[in-house]
């Protein structure tokens, strides 16, 4: 009677066992060599099969070599094993070229895009952005190593080169990009030029689906500088900001034309420097462009 009661209790506690901690049953625990406590014999013959609670025997050691090697030979198996374990087991590499913005605006043009190559965790990213009217006003390219540091974020480091404005500049780059709560795509990068100038850029956007294919994208970008950079017209502090709202229609996932508005403004000394050389301090523009990837 006591044994039967104990068994019933054991069943009662084992059934919702997933709510409990199984740390003691880790399947790769090789430290024990005994065979554990065998489960109690069923006192009630009506309780059998899957109604019986499991015991706590230790896991066996992990065997090597592979069983198939003994039949077909290790050499014959080597290549197919590599394919199965890596090439078809999560180790694939992919590439994408994304033209996030290729747009026309008030007599000028602007582009921002990136290409990447790599797997789930490690990627090489090449980014480029710039703008111009009759000729390039700014043009930059970055080459970054991107490493997944969590479910949503990547740490990035590499180099950046600006061919415009002149004089040309090169930078070391460190930053993060990823998906923030509430589905905001965000990125922040710091740039240290070969001349010792420290600048930064923070960007974010949000894709608001209006329908399955019509998407409104508010977007913000802030540029910062730790010091005045007179020959590129930057003053220290917040140098410029841009807010945009673009409405795109995804004819296909890979191809979406858009229209929108962009508001741009320079701040502080940057604004003063721009005025001094006769450039405007910013304003509102209509934009039209395409977003495409392949």
């Amino acid at each position: 009677m006591t044994a039967r009661l104990a068994l019933l209790l054991a069943i009662g506690t084992a059934t919702p066992a997933w709510a409990q901690d199984h740390a003691g049953h880790g399947q790769m625990d090789h430290s024990k060599t005994d065979h554990g406590t065998p489960p109690p014999p069923p006192a009630d013959p009506a309780v059998s099969g899957t109604d019986l609670p499991p015991g706590d025997a230790p896991a066996p050691p992990v065997p090597m070599p592979h069983a198939a090697d003994g039949i077909w030979g290790a050499d014959a198996m080597a290549n197919s094993r590599k394919v199965m374990m890596a090439d078809e087991g999560g180790g694939q590499r992919f590439a994408q070229v994304l033209l996030d913005r290729l747009e026309w605006r008030d007599g000028g043009y602007r582009w921002e895009g990136e290409g990447w190559f790599g797997g789930d965790l490690h990627r090489l990213v090449v980014k480029s952005e710039g703008e111009g009217k009759d000729r390039f006003e700014s043009a930059e390219v970055q080459a970054l190593y991107s490493h997944a540091v969590g479910p949503y974020f990547n740490l990035q480091a590499g180099v950046r080169h600006d061919s415009r404005p002149t004089p040309k500049r090169s930078y070391a780059v460190v930053g993060v990009e990823g998906l923030a709560p509430y589905w905001f795509e965000v990125e922040a990068h710091g740039f240290l030029s070969t001349r010792g100038e420290l600048t930064g850029r923070v960007e974010g956007y949000y894709d608001q689906r209006i329908t399955q294919r019509l998407i409104a994208q508010p977007r913000a970008e802030l540029n910062l500088s730790a010091q005045d950079v007179r020959d590129t017209g930057l003053g220290s502090g917040l140098t410029s900001a841009e807010l945009g709202l673009r409405l795109r229609y995804e004819i296909a996932r890979e191809f979406a034309p858009y229209v929108g508005v962009a508001w741009e403004r320079r701040f502080g000394d940057t604004r003063r420097f721009a005025r001094a050389r006769g450039a405007d301090a910013g304003g509102v523009e209509l934009v039209a462009g395409i977003r495409a990837w392949f």
Partner: peptide, 10 residues
């Protein structure tokens, strides 16, 4: 086979 499982893994 109606034996109880000798161990369990998650």
């Amino acid at each position: 086979d109606v034996r109880a499982a000798g161990r369990q893994i998650d």
